[in-house]
Amino acid sequence: METSPLRYTDLPIGDRAAFELVCARHGFAPAHFDISACADPGDVAHERLVTVRRGGWAQSYHDRHGQWIRQFESDLTCRFFK
């Protein structure tokens, strides 16, 4: 499974705008996070698995047409990345 590092600017425009908004709502800048993505071999729809890292914390989300951003915001709300 190949993982490619991304910056938030490499995300599709809709995901990028949503990511920026979620970060701002929680007092972060997109640059505070490292993002990588890879194909999820266990997903029959061949969606990406997006991993977000900050410091020693990391969380992976199934892309599912941008749904990962909602899950990411939920983790920010729970202070997972603080």
Score class of each variant (00 low, 15 high):
Met1Gly: 15
Met1Ala: 15
Met1Trp: 10
Glu2Cys: 10
Glu2Phe: 00
Glu2Asp: 15
Pro5Tyr: 13
Leu6Val: 00
Arg7Glu: 03
Thr9Gly: 04
Asp10Asn: 14
Asp10Phe: 01
Asp10Pro: 03
Leu11Met: 15
Leu11Val: 09
Pro12Phe: 03
Ile13Asn: 04
Gly14Asn: 04
Gly14Tyr: 01
Arg16Gly: 02
Phe19Arg: 04
Leu21Tyr: 04
Val22Trp: 03
Val22Lys: 01
Cys23His: 05
Gly27His: 07
Phe28Gly: 15
Phe28Ser: 06
Phe28Glu: 15
Ala29Trp: 08
Ala29Phe: 03
Pro30Gln: 09
Pro30Trp: 04
Ala31Tyr: 00
Ala31Pro: 05
Phe33Tyr: 09
Asp34Glu: 14
Ser36Ala: 14
Ser36Asn: 12
Ala37Val: 00
Ala37Asn: 07
Cys38Thr: 10
Cys38Leu: 08
Ala39Ile: 14
Asp40Gly: 11
Asp40Ile: 06
Asp43Asn: 09
Val44Ala: 04
Arg48Trp: 05
Leu49Ser: 08
Leu49Cys: 03
Leu49Asp: 06
Val50Gln: 07
Val50Asp: 12
Val52Pro: 13
Arg53Trp: 03
Arg53Ser: 14
Arg53His: 04
Arg54Pro: 05
Gly55Cys: 13
Gly56Met: 11
Gly56Val: 11
Trp57Gln: 14
Ser60His: 02
Tyr61Ser: 08
Tyr61Cys: 05
Arg64Val: 01
Trp68Thr: 01
Arg70Cys: 10
Gln71Trp: 10
Gln71Gly: 14
Gln71Ile: 06
Phe72Lys: 02
Phe72Ala: 08
Phe72Cys: 03
Ser74Lys: 11
Leu76Pro: 02
Thr77Gly: 01
Cys78Leu: 13
Cys78Val: 07
Arg79Phe: 09
Phe81Asn: 09
Phe81Val: 12
Lys82Val: 08
